[in-house]
Design a protein around this nucleic acid. Structure first.
Lengths: 257, 257
DNA sequence: GGATTGTAGATTGTCAACAATTGACTTGAC
DNA sequence: GTCAAGTCAATTGTTGACAATCTACAATCC
């Protein structure tokens, strides 16, 4: 997967490549939630015209990685507990569907790919490197979705996973218990390989349950503490809008141009 | 829902409005699958610059309503049976999730909205107008998703629903048994109102099963008839690419400019 | 005759200038 | 002192011109 399109020239448009660079910067944590993006500065920095950069920003906003306020600004989204709840509930559902499909339509080839991904996770855990485990973890989930063969599911999952990665890195939530990781994933893989769609779906969905519950609990706590009128998680999507003032103005990309 | 933003001036950007117009044309069937879209012609037609129109086309391509071939053309997607299978399996999953959430977090207000949507479906069936029934049907499903309160689910469902509508109108698949419609939806609504998440999810998902099976069967038939090597639905996503030659060149928007 | 190379027209990709909008700041009346 | 209207700089929205690329067709070579 590393040297696949090795020698070919890069035929993709500039705006696509600009989007890729920005995507990389966002997902690596170089750009933080709430941060503002200014078109002219970014365009100069990437050495493309403003129009081209604009197309890239638009693409990223469709992917949920940045937000636009018309005539005013582009900025990275800030994640509330409600967002975390949405992210993980949706992920549970999509992964459940993928696991079910994978168990229904399994082939020798796809099972080999799945096994390999699982073995890489085991190896990563043995290495005791948290970053590597996190990567292998995400990769295994992505593999399950991939072997479902459902193109639209794959694409939706890709977009969702990006947001999850952005959330994880921006909330320093990559803490994990290395001793549990393998035990948590093995049943899912086994159910798929064994061709048990119902079980695979249930396990894949439940795999996200701890995060869902954590977010739901934090959400409930937020509301109790703030004496909010609605206890339902979905109603309290009001973002902490004017939080910027207290922490001082956030760094802008303008500075680095 | 009709006269909501009545008197206010339209503050949205030109490209947004251009996208809306094109979206409308696609979903109403004015533009057919496989049809080519030429930037200059469309720009003249809508009286916006090419750059602005381009932004609109990009937005629609992110929504899955049109496809782009870099440096070559924009065109409406053509739907295969594999696409139909994807559309309805995904819809079943998302609607199932929505129904479950709706049953879990129900409130008086949302139940009233749900009831009203169901009643509109009943009234539409009584009127015996197929178009009106189809609209009320889609609206009821959308309502269930809406009262889930899950913003990301709502947005994903919106995009998926657009593709489903495009598929339905372009494949003349809006045939339906008016005598069955109410009986098919009532149990789902009841389960939600009764606060039975598991049942609501299962029923909502099963509601899409007939379409899924029809598509899967058609897919299997396609493969058998064409003696395709792979029997799996997901493998046969090869679109009938060079189908254009046999049926003659398709009409382009160029003509109407 | 078949395959390869060159050319022309059409179409999309990119850019830099100009217009419109916003939000913060200033000014002045009360 | 407070509030409202006016001003201005910063930023995004829009446009038309120019560049790069693709497809189809014609010319050429073997």
């Amino acid at each position: 997967m590393k040297s696949a399109k090795s020698v070919k020239v890069d035929r993709r448009s500039l705006d696509w490549r600009a989007a890729e660079i920005l995507r990389e910067q966002i997902l690596s944590g170089q750009l933080v939630p709430g941060q503002r993006l200014v078109e002219t500065a970014l365009a100069n920095q990437l050495e493309v015209s403003r129009g081209t950069l604009r197309a890239a920003l638009r693409a990223l906003s469709h992917e949920g990685l940045i937000q636009q306020v018309a005539y005013t600004k582009w900025m990275l989204p800030e994640f509330s507990q409600a967002d975390a709840w949405e992210l993980y509930t949706l992920r549970g559902t999509l992964e459940g569907m993928a696991a079910r499909l994978a168990a229904e339509h399994r082939s020798e080839e796809s099972m080999a790919i799945l096994d390999a991904a699982f073995e890489r996770l085991v190896a990563a855990v043995d290495s005791r490197k948290h970053t590597r485990v996190a990567e292998a973890d995400l990769a295994l989930h992505k593999t399950i979705v991939s072997i479902s063969g459902h193109q639209r599911l794959i694409e939706q999952y890709r977009l969702l996973e990006q947001q999850v990665r952005h959330y994880i890195i921006s909330s320093n939530a990559l803490i994990m218990d290395l001793t549990q990781i393998v035990a948590e994933h093995q049943p899912i893989v086994r159910a798929i390989v064994a061709g048990e769609p119902e079980t695979a779906e249930r396990l894949a969905r439940e795999h996200n349950a701890p995060e869902v519950e954590r977010a739901a609990a934090a959400l409930a706590h937020e509301n109790t503490a703030a004496a909010a009128p609605e206890p339902e998680p979905e109603k309290s999507r009001a973002k902490p809008a004017a939080r910027q003032g207290a922490a001082g103005p956030r760094e802008s990309v303008k500075a680095s141009a």
